[in-house]
């Protein structure tokens, strides 16, 4: 089932440049998609992507040729994103959420009309801590205890940060909805 990937990896382990190039081009778009969600902008996403691939190519020999290569690579890039989060914690921004209403409702039609690019822009505009937890919980389906363990925070912090992240997202969606209604 994974024979092609395994063959490709074996060739990479033999330092075949063509195979390394092939491996990069096979997984770069998907990993870039992940990095764009975890980075604050395209430049930051590039940094995460770069670090992820450096780690990947220097630890190829750690793959045990069991299970999916893609899942293993995804985990590497998630770790790269987590490292990015930890590195940037000291720069986390203060967000005033005092005026946010908890029960902001977004109209279903407005939600379905929103494009992927707009959603990405919303995620990228979140502070790094909110963004990381929002990605891990909402998109990657991690539980709070797993997030807490991976990020080195408490479950409570994970929950509160997710709540705040969601609140910010709702506010931005509402702003957009209002903008289009006015328009």
């Amino acid at each position: 089932m994974f024979d092609d990937d395994y063959d490709l990896l074996r060739r990479c382990l033999k330092k075949e440049v063509a195979a390394e190039y092939q491996l990069y081009h096979r997984f770069a778009p998907k990993m870039n998609g992940i990095c764009l969600r975890y980075g604050g902008n395209e430049r930051e996403a590039e940094d995460i992507l770069q670090n992820g691939f450096v780690h990947l190519f220097s630890h190829l020999n750690q793959f045990k040729f069991e299970g999916s290569l893609e899942c293993w690579i995804e985990r590497i890039f998630l770790n790269a994103a987590i490292n990015y989060y930890k590195k940037n914690l000291k720069f986390r921004q203060y967000v005033d959420l005092s005026h946010i209403e908890e029960d902001v409702s977004i109209h279903e039609d407005a939600l379905s009309a929103i494009s992927q690019d707009e959603l990405l822009a919303i995620i990228q505009s979140l502070p790094v801590g909110y963004r990381t937890i929002f990605n891990m919980y909402v998109i990657e389906n991690y539980q709070h205890n797993e997030i807490a363990s991976l990020l080195g925070i408490s479950e409570g912090t994970s929950k509160s940060q997710l709540f705040r992240a969601k609140a910010m997202v709702k506010r931005m969606l509402k702003e957009r909805e209002t903008y289009y209604k006015i328009g």
Binding site: A28, P29, K30, N32, G33, R37, E46, L49
Partner: peptide, 13 residues
């Protein structure tokens, strides 16, 4: 909405 939009999100770097 976020989950479905980014489940297969890919972009060429």
């Amino acid at each position: 909405k976020f989950k479905s939009s980014f489940s297969d999100f890919e972009k060429e770097p």
